[in-house]
Design a binder for these strands. Structure first.
Lengths: 250, 250
DNA sequence: TTCGCGTTCTCTGTATACATGCTGCACTCA
DNA sequence: TGAGTGCAGCATGTATACAGAGAACGCGAA
């Protein structure tokens, strides 16, 4: 019922966008595959006008690529593309942290971040971390990063970070779930949480270079997780990036 | 004739996009002003379907902002937004330079960049720099930056740099023409050209940190130019960003 | 005079019809 | 047998008609 309401409330464009994105991320549409409007109409059940809007939106989201002669194809990524996107995200978050540190933030505005830090601490401190705890971690982690970015007080920067993080394999939480299957899971989580702690400390003390450097390094945990998970072939189903790779790893 | 052909060959969507962008950048559409589809239809003379596409494209170009209740408004920027966008561009170009340096580039692929450097040298070395020379500098400078970014060999990064540089006030050449009216013009040009030289040297010697740092600093020349031009009130008509400012400087 | 409700109008979202340009295949001619 | 040309089918680009939602204005009542 509420689901039906929700379905009705969102525009056809958004519905088409969600449906197509799902098809791409789940791998039902292969990288490099051309996707015609009519095909998209068949898939989504909405008419061509909103479908086109959705295709354009997915293009600048980075999941599709315009074909010069018209139409779109599913974008194919290399492992290198993914690693570069993570480094890119880290660089931008580093800039945000530096902005926050150099320009200074009020104790008042730092409070939510510290609360979030404490919540994460609680989760990480457990000896045995359940899948539910991992899931909670993903949520809190996303919140932490969002709060941090906001401290930069720079709309253009936040916009770009959001954009880069929209790629399913570049977001701060992309590989946390994949990591949960690794033996080193707990240790990586602890290191990541230490990064969180350090960056808050650096911002508080207005140490711009330190804040920037630690956020860059922080993003490299994601790169490490990705490499580990791919090499170990563990829980590949937890890797949202897999379907987008040019040559599948499996 | 050829113009009429060109007009016919481009799609209505592109034509509408160009017309609307021109209206915005020239200030005929004020920052914060709401722009309805029908209004855009009147302005551009094309029908609603391509107009909508154009509006969406301008939105993710960053010139328009979607209104939650539907429709779009012209985005308003603060001086701080502009300075942040320049710093953002510098950070990304710095990352590109670092990638190029750390990963190494062949002597072969460095050649066009060095040629470009030499051409720029020739322009900068003149005692008295004409307006035409400035204009040529803008072109060569854009080419230099494009070549440099390509050396990163990172499609995701290049994509983001292009995106950020699409904002009229964030591109590497945005304030070069405005700078031409300044007394310090020649000196600034020389410093910028030295940055160019240094970054090529750093890439050649695989000095990643140096390459990154100098590109960041390089972008701050643009910030300096902007501030100087605004403070001096010189040739404000050469500042493409002016029309987008929340509170006009004039 | 002000507030609230209703009506109307305008705008956006969606669907569909039409035209043009491209691609691929087949047939013909050398 | 190979290459070139023409035709057909289809996909995209564009225009327009229609419906629904939201905002504004006016009218009536307190």
């Amino acid at each position: 019922m509420s689901e039906r309401d929700a379905e009705r409330s969102v525009s056809q464009t958004v519905r088409a966008q969600l449906a197509l994105r799902d098809m791409i991320l789940s791998g039902r549409l292969r990288p490099g595959e051309r996707i015609s409007e009519l095909q998209a109409v068949d898939i989504t059940g909405v008419s061509r006008t909103p479908v086109r809007l959705a295709l354009v939106r997915l293009e600048d989201e980075g999941l599709l690529q315009a074909i010069p002669s018209g139409g779109f194809m599913v974008k194919a990524f290399t492992e290198r593309d993914i690693l570069d996107s993570i480094e890119l995200r880290g660089t931008l978050e580093g800039l945000a942290a530096r902005f926050a540190a150099e320009r200074g933030v009020s104790a008042r505005s730092l409070e939510p971040l510290k609360e979030c830090l404490a919540d994460l601490d609680q989760l990480v401190r457990q000896d045995q971390i359940s899948v539910e705890a991992f899931s909670a971690y993903v949520t809190m982690n996303a919140r932490f990063h969002a709060l941090l970015n906001e401290l930069s007080a720079s709309a253009p920067l936040i916009r770009e970070i959001d954009r880069v993080s929209a790629l399913p394999f570049a977001s701060p939480s992309a590989f946390v779930m994949a990591q949960s299957a690794l033996p080193e899971a707990h240790q990586i989580l602890l290191i990541g949480q230490d990064h969180h702690r350090v960056v808050v400390d650096a911002i508080e003390n207005r140490e711009g270079a330190r804040a920037e450097a630690v956020m860059r390094e922080h993003s490299r945990l994601a790169a490490r997780n990705l490499r580990l998970a791919i090499r170990n072939r563990t829980h590949l189903d937890l890797l949202p990036a897999l379907a987008l790779l040019k040559s599948p790893v499996e």
